[in-house]
Design a binder for these strands. Sequence first.
DNA 1: GCAAGGTC
Length: 703
Amino acid sequence: MRSRRGATRQPSACSPRPGYVLVIAEKPKAGERIAGALAQGRPVKCRWRGVPYWVLWRDGSTLVVAPSAGHLYGPYSGERGYPVFSYEWRPLWEFERGSAHLRKFHEMLARLSRGARLYVNACDYDIEGSVIGYMIIYMLGDPRRARRMKFSTLSPLDIRRAYERLEPLDREMVEAGMARHELDWLWGINLSRALMDAVRRASRRRVILSAGRVQTPTLVEAVRRWRERNLHVPKPRFRLRLRLEAGGVEFTAHPRGWEPGSREEASRIASELRAEASLRVSSAGAVERILRPPPAFNLGDLQSEAARIYGYSPMKTQSIAENLYLEALISYPRTNSQKLPPTIDYSWIISRLAALKAGGLGGLAARLLSEARGALRPVQGRKDDPAHPAIYPTGELPRRALSRDEWRIYELIVRRFLAAFSRPARVASTTLVLVDSRGREYEARGVEVVEEGWLAYYHYTRPREGLVPLLKQGEEARILGVSYSTEWSRSSVQLSKSSLVKWMESVGIGTEATRARIVEILFKRGYLESRGGSTVVTGLGEAVADTIEELVPIIAGPELTRRFEELLESIRRGARSRVEVVEEAKQAIRNVVEGFKSRIDAIGERLAVSMGLIEPESRCPICGRESEPGAPAGLCRLHRMALDRLASELPVIASRLGTNIRGALEAIARRGEAGRWVSEAARAALEVPELMSYLARRARPPR
DNA sequence: GCAAGGTC
């Protein structure tokens, strides 16, 4: 009986005689590629309870390629209480919520392991892949009869080459990977239990709290940004705007390198200018910039573009991308790479995309093919990934109508992919410098896209255009009008899911697959909340961040990850052992827990107050948070901080506005640009004499 | 139940 791939099962082929080579892949998709590359002839696709594996023949041996689905094992402890230092590696399906589907993978691998003469770890060539494959071989097979396959892409050539050059098991890499799991487990479980215990003792309530190497620094950063935003004191600036005309073209100019220092000065200069008829051009220059095409997306770039353009959360973008991947429309999305390797058949993919009907994408693909005339070389970004290339469309076309959200993400990926093959764009910018009769300089700028290039494919980063007339030095521009406006500075600090994910990436914590998920955990724990489309930190989030910064500063910032990296590197080099490193961590955690327990009542009380579980002794009259000892009028720490910031900024603001302290305070109390605690403190100071005199004592006149 | 990391 002949069978087509995947169509029919062949019972005899699917239960090969013992003595075969078992090749373990990290996931089904990779297994399929590996089987296809290694088979001489066609691999036979088999299933066990729905999980695929492949049987094939190569140089007279039988190979069975069987996939895992990521990690099948992890540290587990049945022990309650803390500190907890004993654990063992157990199958995840036995104890982890949401891992039930791993059971059939585990059983399939257990069955196939029995008849193998050789085990090959063919998981992704990175630290986690080494652990995934090794644990399966260790638990179900025999590490003494095992080898490692090392390949950097899933191209048939790389896979075949890796199989011809099997290497010994990478034991040091595995030890480093296991150490990573164990260290994260020990720190995370113990600190989380300590926090929960503190609240339970203070309030008799059970609440789920957590801390960890990645989530806690992210929370601390969110708190820092939250405070910065809410403590923002806006400052007024005065912006002069001149409407000019020359040669029939109207345009706008602004002061160049100076600005009016006060409202009074702005008003005086405006009337002086109104009395003049024209400005003289002192110099004119044009420069042309070349904008290189952006590289194809990695997950982080895709997440931030989807957030910028459509307001999608990183988690939403990620799960949409995962669906597109599972439907074979795009390549593997959990990648850090901005590079497209030369081994992929791009002209085939782009010709397939030319058949896309919706959204004009097909037309763009066809246009690219005719523009490129066979020379398809993508730009390469700087970032790389050991296991995967940048995200690209596979050339498979959607078989069903995509939802609006799915289509948007798919379109972003396709457009960005096409742009990577296109030509640079050229943008001309013109700068006119003009002077008035008193020698003050003004500037007018024009921007024009001279050659579209890649902007035709990825138009989301098109520069804003505007024209200025082509004038020469000495020529004049007529003044049509002069105005000035007061602009209050806004806080430039961002706080959103997307900005937190970006921050994590910039300091190197978390991975492509986990960053968005860990930000969601901060919301789930009640540390962060979405209110009216923006992200806020809750009182609980602040209390947890402050508590950990005070008691366990090592885990409050990205430094612990750096420390981990050094330790893991030393294990990989063979300079240190996993046991040694883990024992050291246990000692550090033992000390931390001891310190925590000695102050557990105070910690628990602070956390419980922040959650509203127990009453504080005295509350801030503005917000109801716990009062800070010694603060004026019983303010909390945050409103006291806001008051102090006001005190230091008010004198300058008053002089710019040409008013006194009270006048400046009144202006700030109404400004939407002011941080929330600042405007609240300003309003309170206008009403409560004690606060006003506190301010007056601290507000020093400007030098 | 609690981490972070794989992947479905």
